[in-house]
């Protein structure tokens, strides 16, 4: 059963999109595309297998929940030049 209190956090910018996490996920709760990765939150059971499997430490476990963590949305880094 999915848990209301999500504790798994993927840091997308760190990810190599290798799929090791998807291979061990028993809930089919990770969507992986060419260079996008996302947790399907209502399927995740916080089992942590993806956290352990990730060769690059991209997936984090937060016992206190992930609600307070910033959402990873693309940001403009250079706004100095305006045309």
């Amino acid at each position: 059963m999915p848990q209301p209190h999500l504790m798994i956090h993927i840091v997308p910018g760190k990810c190599d999109y290798c799929g090791c996490c998807v291979g061990v996920c028993p809930e089919d709760a990770i969507e992986l595309m060419e260079s996008k990765i996302a947790l399907i939150e209502d399927r995740c059971t916080n089992c942590r297998k993806c956290v352990w499997a990730c060769p690059w430490e991209v997936i984090e476990f937060h016992r206190e929940g992930v609600g307070h963590l910033p959402k990873h949305t693309p940001q403009m880094l250079n706004e100095a030049v305006k045309f």
């Binding site: 090791c20 061990v24 028993p26 297998k49 352990w52 060769p55």
Partner: peptide, 12 residues
């Protein structure tokens, strides 16, 4: 097709 974690090799 889920691979058991004892069988999955995590590689870098």
């Amino acid at each position: 097709t889920t691979c058991h974690i004892r069988d999955m090799e995590s590689c870098a």
